[in-house]
Design a protein around this nucleic acid. Structure first.
Lengths: 125, 125
DNA sequence: ACGAAATGAAACCAAAAGGTATTATATAGA
DNA sequence: TCTATATAATACCTTTTGGTTTCATTTCGT
């Protein structure tokens, strides 16, 4: 097998697949927009009212969110309805889930330490 | 209760807490470094051998990862050992997990659609 | 003690990011 | 058909980012 993607975590495909999502998530305003859209679909104008930046700036953020496939846009007349696409977060979540194993190890160790501490206290040491 | 953090998803505390992690994760080189460090602790020199950029550039990435609490640094003589801190990913993962509910809804709907399709096929429609 | 090795730090650079203001276009409604 | 509304598009500006090069500092090994 020349190119086994499943074991090649450093392959371009993997790195670039989640890039759009991670890029979009790196800005706090964009994460705020995702939160907003999780409650209801909104036009650019609607979204803009929640931030102290111009509509044009919000539009740019929405463009980046769309590029990252985190939202979709549906045109209705002169309005542009922005809709959350939660599945777009999958690539980022999948990437992060790789680290669950190490996270669990750490938590287990921490829990063990706490339990030992409690046990020692009980024994009056 | 004047300030209930648990329900205030837009609070500064929540937005800025994960900001360091999300910022660190936005660069593909940094994500590659995290992958590397998940296999073993490494010095700057070790890490640098895996990328086509200078040691100085790698150092900057490591600084950002450290600021985001995604790695820790342990000095040993003239060497600087970089170690993965998987718990540092928690704030980002927690933030993303909020969206699980919507993700699940989408997947359920998709699954239902597929099942209905299969059922229709069976019935020869 | 000395040279090589590992890193730190600063100055510098080009491109990307986040923002603004301005102008243009399309459409809803009276 | 006119006008106000919703958005698109462009030019422009400043700061941040990702990178380099150069030079200084610390430490290992002989």
């Amino acid at each position: 097998m020349i190119n086994d993607i499943s074991t090649d975590r450093f392959s371009n495909s993997n790195l670039t697949q989640s890039q759009g999502a991670f890029r979009a998530l790196s800005d706090p305003t964009r994460r705020g927009i995702l939160m907003l859209l999780s409650e209801q679909d909104m036009t650019i104008g609607d979204v803009s009212e929640h931030f102290d930046i111009t509509r044009a700036a919000v539009k740019k953020h929405l463009n980046i969110l769309e590029e990252g496939a985190l939202i979709s846009v549906h045109i209705s007349g002169r309005e542009r309805i922005n809709k959350l696409e939660p599945l777009g977060l999958k690539s980022a979540v999948d990437w992060l889930n790789y680290f669950n194993q190490f996270w669990d190890e750490k938590l287990s160790a921490l829990q063990q330490a706490v339990e030992n501490e409690l046990k020692n206290q009980k024994e009056g040491k």
